[in-house]
Nucleic acid binder design. Structure first.
Lengths: 214, 214
DNA sequence: CACCCGCTGGACTCCGAAGTCCAAATTCTG
DNA sequence: CAGAATTTGGACTTCGGAGTCCAGCGGGTG
């Protein structure tokens, strides 16, 4: 077993454009399907059909289902981080946080709270059954929190947040509120708990503003 | 299909003490096993073995796996609510909340954050695949939040919380922080994020105290 | 342009997990 | 105690999903 697995495997054999495209098609289908049904409830035949491929292609590009799932963790993680960094990398103000919150809430309300966070559901589903997937997800969460805490650092350096504000802890709290909000919203089929949770976390951050805006 | 399923079915056929005991043994085994492995990763044979029963007993007491899972949702929900009402029904002070928080953190730290909340993991695993299980879990979460909000109401009526505090929203926020904290702790194998999340929620509640204690 | 090797189609095997069945044991009721 | 119902043991069937195999295609490279 190879010790490392990245989105595009660079080692060993040559790989053609067509191969890369197929691999991508498989991951994309797996990503879409598992988002609604969950990882374990999605079969390889589901993925094969949705990606317009064949059994041999699945096993040509991935050793087995576990490897496919691990690649999917990386794939979805990269998508989330890409989307999130777009919304967070220029964060410098409290109103920016509010815009970020609103975007998440709006996206989630399209499904009445259903489906939750692709990372969070994978985390609960895989953490106890695949150590590599777990640690990969853990790293992704850390990177996501870092996007937030970096923004909070900029706010603190810019004099918006008090010096005793702890960006890392604030980011962790916000992430927990987000994930818990997703979970409750998904269970209730109602986006409201997610809003309440995020507002709580934002209120908490607001309490560290130098000049409380309220 | 019967329209309702409660922990102890009262309808139709007589039921003996022995039957009740077996049913309980099955649910108890299912409860223990699924807590670590998840529902879908636990097989009926696992449960059969752990509960010292046979296939026919499983199918005598439950129509199929789905019914067993639904009964398990009820069973675990009752256990959690029982445990939680013991810790929350006399809540009347902020220090009581802190004790409650400490108990949860301590219990979770015994596993280094692993396994999370039995209800939360079921919620994410089942919400998208069994509507009845989802709504049952949703009700359980609501009941749990009510235990909290009832306590906060008592604190507000007792003059500890300001009148503009909203016990329901505070309870939802606290629950989201708890669930998100469980999720992050489980993924990181570290109880720390759960502590941070709960402390954020408690700080938020603290900000509504009439005479802020600190 | 010819060869090699990555790539593909799809039928096939294998296995484990859900669910069935019935005879026998136990318990309840009259 | 007799008869009826519940409860149980455990072998058996069924089915779906993971993984295998191999013949053949096709595109990049020398």
């Amino acid at each position: 077993m190879s010790d490392e697995q990245v989105t595009a495997p660079t080692n060993r054999r040559r790989i053609s454009q067509r191969g890369i495209a197929t691999r991508e098609r498989i991951l994309d289908a797996a990503n879409r399907l598992t988002l609604v049904r969950g990882v374990n409830a999605t079969t390889l035949d589901d993925i094969r059909e949705a990606s317009q491929t064949s059994k041999s292609q699945l096993y040509h590009h991935f050793a087995d289902k576990q490897e496919l799932v691990r690649a999917l963790v990386t794939y979805r993680g990269a998508l989330v981080l890409q989307r999130e960094s777009a919304g967070l990398e220029r964060l410098r103000s409290f109103s920016g946080l509010i815009r970020w919150r609103n975007a998440l809430v709006q996206a989630n309300s399209l499904n009445n709270g259903r489906y939750g966070c692709g990372l969070g559901s994978m985390a609960l589903e895989l953490s106890d059954q695949d150590e590599k997937a777990r640690s990969s997800l853990s790293e992704t969460f850390a990177a996501w929190e870092k996007l937030i805490s970096d923004g909070l650092h900029r706010m603190r350096d810019g004099g918006l947040l008090r010096q005793d504000a702890d960006p890392e802890k604030l980011a962790t709290g916000l992430m927990a509120a987000l994930q818990g909000g997703y979970l409750l919203a998904n269970t209730a089929h109602d986006v409201a708990p997610m809003e309440v949770a995020l507002d709580m976390a934002l209120d908490h951050i607001r309490s560290f503003l130098v000049a409380p805006s309220r």
